[in-house]
Simulated assay, not measured.
Amino acid sequence: MENAVTQHDNHGLATRLVHAGDPQNPRRSVAVPVVDSAAFVMENYAHHMQIEETLSTAPYYSRGYNPTVEALETKLAAIESAPAALAFNAGMAAISTTLLTLGRNGGHIIASDKVFSTSTRWLQENFSTFGGEVTFVNCNDLAEVEAAFRPNTRAVFFEEFTNPLLNVLDLEGLIALAHAHEALAVVDNTFASPALFRPYEFGADLVVHSATKYMSGHGRVLAGALSGHQALIVEIAELRRQMGTIITPHNAAGILQGLQTLDLRVGRASETAHRLALLAVDHEATADVYYPGLPGNVGHDIATRLTGGRYGGMLSFTLNDQSKKAAVYDAFELIIRATSLGDVASLVDSTDDPDVLRISVGIEDPDDLAADLEKALNAAL
């Protein structure tokens, strides 16, 4: 977990994605070993007593620490430019464990009204049972965010690229506002991934991901990731240990493998998604197309500044005739009907918004994906 300095800190992102992590691999294997052990040996009683003081980070029991997980956390911290990181068994485990740590015993969280639907429901239905308070606001309106602060506000929680409409929020403005009120900025950066930009580099205090998505990239494992300030990570690690929300060693190895190709995959998906977004804009069946690379999209200028012009692989659209939504959804042949995102395979999801279809663009041949999207949209004519 304590990953502030590694031998790859000065390298570029693509190099860190491949090489950062597990700097002390005793067996010298190229791939990080999967350490399948529930418990770890105590040298003596003094060692046992020492570990009792650091159960969340010491080699004691895999509910708090595991060498394969440590290797992943070292890589996560390195790629996010953060002092420390934690890995969880799902994205929602990362979100719930983090917000519970910050909001328990009367803490107030300001949350974007456009966060992931499960995050919204968890905050609405369960957060208060642990003593937390939440206010949902439109984070596109900084004045509305400003008005929501209370003396007990501990964090502002938002997605930088919103799901599913791809609004891009004023990242730096929200961070500055949180800090002006002595609160934390907690950013869910799942849609963008570290390949596009890294919120910690812009002043965010904690950055969370559903690592199931782009970090994995192959649709095989559930995982969550958190990076940020050392003291906060230590505090959250203790609750993770108590709740048992740590990632398994095998799933940690899966994320480690996926991260090695993250930059390549997101680069390819971004190029293709931009092409598909332009195709959708020009098609007579669509009403609105949501993609940060489109000049008319909310936050396009911010996205350009943050990413340097690589806008990611997610796009959404609505139809002029909403009665044709099912026909369009059913007409896809190459793009798979599934609810996840960030995979090498392209996916289409109906989403919780009854009017929206969302596409996660993969790494297939762009011509084939364009043909499949056009055929599906033609089903609405």
Rank of each mutant, 00 (worst) to 15 (best):
A31P: 01
A31N: 07
P33W: 01
P33Q: 04
V34W: 05
V34P: 06
V35K: 08
V35A: 14
V35G: 09
V35T: 14
V35N: 11
D36I: 06
D36S: 12
D36R: 15
D36L: 15
S37L: 11
S37N: 10
S37Y: 05
A38Y: 07
F40E: 05
F40S: 02
F40I: 04
F40N: 03
F40M: 00
V41A: 15
V41D: 15
V41T: 15
M42R: 10
E43Q: 15
E43H: 13
N44E: 05
Y45D: 11
Y45A: 09
Y45I: 08
Y45C: 00
A46W: 02
A46P: 00
H47Y: 00
H47S: 14
H47L: 00
H48D: 01
H48R: 12
H48N: 07
M49R: 14
M49L: 15
M49K: 12
Q50K: 13
Q50P: 00
I51F: 09
I51Q: 15
I51D: 11
I51E: 12
E52Q: 15
E52C: 11
E53N: 13
E53F: 06
E53A: 15
E53Y: 00
T54E: 05
T54S: 06
T54P: 03
T54I: 01
T54A: 05
T54M: 03
L55H: 03
L55N: 01
S56A: 15
S56I: 01
T57G: 03
T57V: 09
T57W: 02
A58L: 02
P59E: 09
P59S: 08
Y60P: 03
Y60E: 04
Y61N: 09
Y61F: 12
Y61S: 08
Y61C: 10
S62F: 07
R63T: 08
R63V: 09
R63Q: 08
G64D: 04
G64P: 03
G64N: 06
N66E: 05
N66S: 07
P67Y: 13
P67G: 12
P67K: 10
P67C: 12
T68I: 05
T68F: 05
T68H: 06
T68N: 07
T68A: 07
V69W: 01
V69F: 03
V69K: 03
V69D: 02
V69N: 02
E70L: 14
E70K: 09
E70T: 15
E70Y: 08
E70P: 00
E70C: 10
A71E: 03
L72N: 04
L72K: 07
E73K: 03
T74R: 09
T74I: 10
L76M: 14
L76F: 11
L76R: 05
A77W: 10
A78Y: 08
A78K: 07
A78W: 05
